[in-house]
């Protein structure tokens, strides 16, 4: 198992390096001139050359790549100042360090992801399990029906509806906003509760359906029947035998969902006018701000790889066949 984790971690770093290289060469080696983009409309040749030098674009490509990659590990110096490791460069557009911009936005994204995941896992899996346990009863029908309806909603529809009801027409709550947890825990909770709940609602519906069908599948397994034939109670078999097996598909989807949300929940952020990683990625793309776009992309890739490893470790924890092979 330790060997497995080490191997996967090494593999993840190699993959990150390759992704970095790919993004670098795609963007930097592409046949368009970033300096002139940064220079703007009234650009003099002298100014252009200055910008080239400042951005290091006058250096050979290999050197530029080396500077970029080593900057991530050791930091690097720009004419505008020192960029400490992990240095992802300086935004063309704002002149800020990309890393610190990402770090400014990340707490919001993390709150959205973690908060959403906690809610949709607890409620979604719980409801799915209860529906499976009481299969065919009214409880099951209500849970199945509700999740069908909710999972066909979209955030950009449900979000404004909730905002209209809770904020604009009644004034019960304020517009969602992000307050750092360390500064004001209560404000953090209240400020983020609407976006987290709306995001979680839609995911909850999907997880309810998935948990239910996964559980029903498990209940039909031979080994579950054996456990019942041994005289173990229905509840015991449900919680000890069937539940564990039903987690595997849920963990798979959870890994995909969480890693994509950490890379930025664009629609949610836009719907609630929040400034998270997703918004940053959009800004970077709109402004042709290459260092920012590359930075956000690498950051997202990092989480995809990290969560992939965590997912595999979870599989091994659930299923000894994976652990011992």
């Amino acid at each position: 198992m330790v060997q497995f984790i080490i191997r996967r971690t090494v593999g993840a770093f190699v993959t990150l390096f390759l992704i970095g290289a790919a993004t670098f060469f795609l963007f930097v080696a592409a046949p368009s001139d970033y300096a002139s983009l940064a220079c703007g409309k009234d650009c003099s040749p002298q100014r252009l050359a200055d910008i080239r030098e400042a951005l290091g674009l006058d250096l050979p490509l290999a050197r530029q790549f080396w500077d970029f990659m080593s900057g991530i590990v050791t930091g690097r110096d720009f004419p505008t100042g020192h960029c400490s490791a992990p240095c992802l460069g300086v935004s063309f557009y704002s002149g800020d360090m990309v890393w610190s911009t990402i770090m400014d936005r990340f707490p919001l994204t993390l709150t959205l992801t973690a908060g959403g995941a906690v809610v949709f896992l607890l409620v979604g899996i719980g409801a799915g399990m209860i529906a499976a346990y009481r299969r065919g009863t009214l409880v099951d029908k209500v849970a199945t029906g509700a999740s069908m309806v909710l999972s066909s909603f979209q955030i950009y529809f449900l979000g404004p509806v909730v905002l209209t009801i809770l904020v604009y027409s009644t004034g019960w709550m304020e517009d969602p906003k992000y307050v750092p947890l360390t500064r004001d825990p209560v404000g953090w909770f209240i400020g983020m509760s609407i976006p987290v709940c709306v995001l979680a609602t839609i995911f909850t519906a999907q997880y309810t359906r998935m948990a239910r069908s996964s559980m029903i599948e498990q209940l039909a397994e031979d080994h579950v029947r054996t456990a019942r034939a041994k005289g173990m109670s229905r509840r015991y078999v449900f919680l000890r035998y069937a539940w564990r097996g039903s987690l595997i598909p849920i963990v798979t989807i959870l890994g995909i969902d969480v890693s994509s949300m950490l890379g930025g929940a664009v629609v949610t952020e836009l719907t609630f006018s929040l400034q998270g990683i997703g918004r940053l990625a959009v800004d970077g793309a709109v402004n042709k701000d290459l260092p920012l776009t590359m930075g956000v992309m690498l950051f997202g890739a990092f989480f995809i790889l990290l969560i992939n490893i965590l997912t595999d470790i979870t599989y091994a924890w659930i299923d000894p066949r994976i652990r011992l092979s």
């Binding site: 080994h223 579950v224 029947r225 054996t226 097996g245 000894p320």
Partner: peptide, 13 residues
């Protein structure tokens, strides 16, 4: 009871 396929009839967990 004893079932046909002991691989699927015993819990892998």
């Amino acid at each position: 009871m004893i079932f046909q396929d002991p691989l699927t009839a015993l819990s892998p967990f």
